[in-house]
Design a protein around this nucleic acid. Structure first.
Lengths: 194, 194
DNA sequence: CAAGTCACATACAGTCTGCATGTTTTATCC
DNA sequence: GGATAAAACATGCAGACTGTATGTGACTTG
């Protein structure tokens, strides 16, 4: 059981175990109802290890969210850069790709519900900006051809991003995915339409 | 100090004191960082009184939110039923009235950030549906003339509602209110435009 | 006015978080 | 390759918080 492992390997394995266990419990019970003893037990380490690698429970939660946000961004990136698409096609494809990526169980709760409350709306928005929102704004800018009719680019990016998030939440809550996918598509088309 | 008060009067005064104190602290520190001893002290009652009137901390929070959601709905109602407006005018006026109502300090944090995390996305959405969303859907239905081009009424209601909320959050976070007010207006106009 | 109910106040048990201090495993140095 | 340092954990503990159980005085009702 105790194969001689290098230090970085040991640490990485422990951190991954903690991230995996924490993610599962945060998704199942929510941040507040998940205790660090529960996380440590599920990860098969002690609380000492947790507090060695993460400043506190909140820091561990932030790390879980960063990993999750990166995964979402990668999945969207993958889909939009696969085939050669016009800016408008890329925007529409990216929008649906985002909904698909957010359909992975737990992501809406982590990123959209508990995230803002635990990290604060500010920090949570910054995390979103660093991954999803930036991509969306660039896609919008390209598709709009730099003439946002009636609104500024940052504003329309924020409002559209919010609509996407709500769609993801609705789908997770059991609404008909097709209904919200076509609604998102129609909304984007109305935005980019002249 | 001990004016002879009737029981319902006593209870009502205590509950209001708790709601006021809890609202202020939930807004300032957030739900998780607010303790029941702090609330009781600020309300000048004991924790016993708190747990006599509310099942638990969460139940008190829910009561704060219900009062807040009702206030928002009333302010919007007031603005849209003041003058005789066409359905389309009422929808646009109601949208801006909602932004104004949500600009009351603390409301975005209570209703949009902490609410979903503490009560759960489900219950929080139900609260929203009972007040804001229902009004919005009816306004949309009237303005659209029952031909939602490309999306269903429930879906477009949800997406627009999310956009409004994000606009309120952006304004609270320091963004230019005029920028987001015009963006919201432009968005609504594109939705109801044929 | 006696009996009962309501509105609290107080005391307590169990749990949790974060830190301080040990212990073991890996790396470094000579 | 043995000693020393440093990283990676493990353990113990203090303070705080939540919810409940139980006690007490103010009000209400027959």
């Amino acid at each position: 059981m105790q194969a001689r492992r290098t230090n970085p390997e040991r640490a990485e394995a422990t951190k991954t175990a903690l991230l995996d266990a924490a993610r599962a419990l945060f998704v199942r019970d929510g941040y507040a109802e998940t205790s660090t003893p529960m996380i440590a037990e599920a990860a098969k380490v002690t609380r000492g290890a947790l507090y060695h690698h993460y400043a506190d429970k909140r820091d561990l939660f932030r790390s879980v969210l960063e990993r999750e946000a990166r995964a979402v961004a990668e999945e969207v990136e993958m889909r939009t850069s696969a085939a050669p698409l016009t800016p408008r096609e890329a925007l529409l494809e990216g929008s649906l790709a985002y909904l698909d990526a957010m359909a992975v169980p737990g992501r809406t709760r982590l990123l959209l519900v508990d995230g803002p409350a635990v990290l604060g709306a500010q920090e949570s928005a910054a995390l979103d900006e660093a991954h999803a929102a930036r991509t969306l704004r660039e896609g919008l800018e390209a598709a709009l051809g730099r003439n946002p009719q009636g609104f500024t680019l940052p504003a329309v990016t924020a409002l559209l991003s919010a609509a996407f998030d709500r769609a993801a939440l609705a789908i997770e809550a059991g609404s008909d995915p097709a209904e919200f996918r076509s609604a998102v598509t129609a909304l984007v088309e109305r935005i980019v339409a002249e």
